[in-house]
Nucleic acid binder design. Structure first.
Lengths: 197, 197
DNA sequence: CTTCTCACTTGACACCGTGTCAATTGACAC
DNA sequence: GTGTCAATTGACACGGTGTCAAGTGAGAAG
């Protein structure tokens, strides 16, 4: 539960992170994480009651390490809707490859584990808020294409920016990360920004 | 292997299909399929050497039952690129909900089972060909937006039409199927069809 | 009527990964 | 010294897949 050494806890999280990053989320077992942290498998359960719990804790650790919050500053301080949209896509798009391993592992548990599903969905709802904010900013500028309501536009942007789509484009279609970002920005403009007067 | 009753085989495939459709692909075990087919779990292995193999066979059975091939006729016989694009999105978009259960089950195995991964990827390559054909048709009409090479346009269309995106929009965003189809058609036009002269 | 074949059954077992438990060790603290 | 506490050791349960050997029962063939 909670009567434990915080140093070990951190070592476990670090190990989980490293392994998940290295293996792109596939086939990382409790045994592997324990071994890498220099403890026994059973000892993991002194710190995390479940594999799902460990993975979830790892995502928070990851956010902390990678400065998830600060990355959003440019988008929050953007001076126009278009700028905000661009900044958000850049920030999130650059974040995906960094979280990909753990994201994939959590995503794989989503279908079978309720806690994992809840955690993942919450994160995606957070992400959706970012999309919503960008669309709202565009709308406030009267730049949102009349083809879409703000809500539907948000749904579309949120879907475009999914981790799965990033996987497909960069890993399966072999797009360089750079092109992924540029193309998504240009698609978003084309889809969401109203045509000239 | 192959010394068996084809009637039983069909009964197994039917059972698998029904269960996968009903449960949206989640948690369908060999035991369940066997029970529903009225045989023992072990007898399944007289017909399919592996769970993956059974699932894969089920996809082919599904295609046969649902007439996968005929659905593509309208897109193949389209008289313009735009028409072909529309027809393809309509055909594939309408197919997804019908294959969703089995698709999800196969997708879930993709990460852990090589045979499942291969089968899924092949199917997705097939689907990609449909995308490519539509983009090529557009290009032949000189209607493909200069923003994208045919290859990149294919990548984008292929990604837009992924099963995961359908899931997200219809199940998570609660879009009615109708809206899914209409919106995807309109997005595709906006993205791929060149602006006026 | 017997005998052979063949699909299927029965019951057992192996493997893997997760999760649990009881007993033990070793360090540090009072 | 005695207690505390994190961690170890070794064992076991569970669920799901896959395997195996022996048995059953029905139909075909002699």
């Amino acid at each position: 539960m909670s009567s434990d050494n915080p140093e070990t806890r951190k070592r476990i999280l670090k190990s989980a992170l490293t392994l998940l990053e290295a293996s792109r989320g596939k086939g990382v077992r409790m045994t592997d994480i324990a071994k890498r942290a220099g403890i026994t498998r059973q000892a993991l359960y002194l710190h995390f009651s479940t594999r799902a719990e460990l993975l979830i804790a790892t995502t928070f650790y990851l956010d902390e390490v990678k400065g998830a919050e600060e990355r959003l500053v440019p988008s929050r301080t953007a001076r126009s809707g278009i700028e905000r949209l661009d900044a958000y896509i850049e920030a999130w798009g650059a974040y995906i490859p960094e979280i990909h391993g753990i994201a994939k592992a959590l995503l794989a548990m989503r279908d079978t584990d309720d806690a994992a599903a809840k955690a993942w969905d919450e994160r995606m709802q957070d992400m959706r808020q970012g999309c919503e904010a960008a669309i709202d900013a565009l709308n406030r500028d009267n730049m949102l294409s009349p083809d879409h309501s703000p809500n539907q536009a948000t749904d579309i942007l949120w879907t475009m920016l999914s981790v799965r789509n990033w996987e497909q484009l960069t890993l399966e279609c072999a797009w360089p990360q750079e092109r992924y970002i540029e193309t998504l920005k240009s698609l978003a403009r084309r889809i969401f920004v109203a045509d000239g007067p």
